[in-house]
Computed example of a mutant assay.
Amino acid sequence: MKLGYHLGYWSAGPPPGALDAVKRAEELGFDSVWTAEGYGSDAFTPLAWWGAATSRIRLGTNIVQMSARTPTATAMSALTLDHLSGGRFVLGLGASGPQVVEGWYGQPYPKPLARTREYVDIVRKVIARREPVTHDGEFFQLPLKGGTGLGKALKPTVHPLRPEIPIFLAAEGPKNVALAAEICDGWLPLFFSPRSDAFYRGALQEGFGRPNARHTLSDFEVAASVPVLVHDDVEEAASWIKPSLALYIGGMGAKSVNFHHDVFARMGYADVADKVQELYLAGRKDEATAAIPTSLVEDTSLIGPAAKIREELARWEETVVTTLLLRGDADTLSKVAAALS
């Protein structure tokens, strides 16, 4: 498996030492570096800023939220970054969830799979630049129907560096994973576990088996965000990860719609996920964190002494995952890279 570095999205401000970590990742031979966005920092700007200090490592978004931009605007950013990076850009897209889509962007959330299909189709048309871009869909019309009636089909003034830019899709549910396999070049899973490998293989094969699928499993990328902490005390290492898990399982979504909660339920932790969600939504965040067993952390992370991590890595190497996306500062990346070698 290859290694990637995931910067994530900012909290109160830019993460300290980010540029040093990006440079270290390239020095260590990492394949890729990734940024994200929620409802604060955007994904493109930090990637361009820090990526300018690199020359080899691939630059990806994990993820760009589709509701934040029209597909043509996203394609413009992708074309631009691909040129500036010398063809190193990877466009990672995601639908996000209804709380952010409707609450922050003021866009409708229903039918995310159908909307994603149209979105990706338009982005590919823009990047290919074969002809003026037209699209007559349920969610997007180019040119727009109605309005002034003066809309004109256009193609980008910029000639693409490459006729295609890799597009990865963030997905958690089986239908969305299958869609990634059908129309994209890679999948960006969150909270992947080796014990869920068979489930996801089935979802991917569903997509690969569709008539116009672009890939097979042999040439499809799966870049999974996996916490890796080298530490002599497993319980202490787990304690650093549990608060984030509690946030996603309990608070990243409504009680009736939380895709992260559903991932852990499918993994066999339904009772735990329900309890964490109940406590978290009641404002009892510390109790929600305490309700997460270390076994759940170990199922979705690589934590503990270097020897333990190397032993458990064998399980991950047998899965569909092709790249482990790591987090941390420059020193952490060096320690983890050494532990995984």
Rank of each mutant, 00 (worst) to 15 (best):
G4L: 13
Y9W: 15
G13P: 03
G17S: 09
L19D: 10
D20A: 15
A25G: 06
E26Y: 12
E26C: 12
E27V: 10
L28H: 06
L28V: 06
L28M: 07
F30I: 08
V33E: 08
T35C: 06
G38A: 13
Y39M: 12
Y39A: 08
G40Y: 09
A43E: 00
F44N: 03
P46D: 09
P46L: 06
G51H: 01
G51I: 09
A52G: 09
R58C: 00
N62H: 11
A68N: 02
P71V: 12
T74E: 05
A75S: 05
M76T: 12
L79I: 11
L84K: 04
L84T: 02
S85H: 05
G86N: 05
F89Q: 00
A95Q: 04
V101C: 01
P108R: 12
T116Q: 08
R117A: 13
R124S: 05
R130H: 09
V133H: 10
H135A: 05
E138R: 13
Q141A: 11
P143F: 13
G149R: 05
G149P: 10
G151E: 11
G151C: 08
G151K: 07
A153N: 01
K155I: 13
V158C: 05
L161I: 08
E164S: 04
I167P: 01
F168P: 00
F168I: 02
A171G: 02
E172N: 12
P174W: 05
V177P: 01
A178I: 04
L179F: 03
L179Q: 00
A180R: 03
D185K: 05
D185F: 08
G186V: 14
W187R: 01
L188F: 13
L190H: 09
F192S: 02
S196M: 14
S196Q: 15
S196E: 14
R201K: 11
G202T: 04
E206P: 02
G209A: 11
R210T: 05
R214S: 01
R214T: 10
H215A: 12
T216G: 11
T216R: 11
L217V: 15
S218R: 14
S225N: 14
V228Y: 04
H231V: 10
D232Y: 09
D232E: 13
V234A: 02
E236L: 14
A238L: 13
A238V: 11
S239I: 09
W240Q: 06
A246H: 07
A246P: 12
Y248V: 02
G250N: 08
M252F: 15
G253Y: 11
A254G: 15
K255W: 15
K255C: 04
H260S: 00
H261K: 10
D262A: 14
V263I: 15
F264T: 04
A265T: 14
A265Q: 14
A265P: 02
R266G: 07
L279P: 00
Y280C: 04
A282M: 01
D286W: 11
E287D: 14
E287W: 06
A288T: 10
A290H: 07
A291Q: 06
I292F: 08
I292T: 04
P293L: 13
T294L: 02
V297N: 01
V297L: 05
E298D: 05
T300D: 06
L302E: 00
I303F: 08
P305L: 04
A306P: 08
E311D: 09
R315E: 10
W316D: 01
L324C: 09
L325F: 05
L326M: 03
R327G: 14
G328D: 04
G328E: 12
L333V: 15
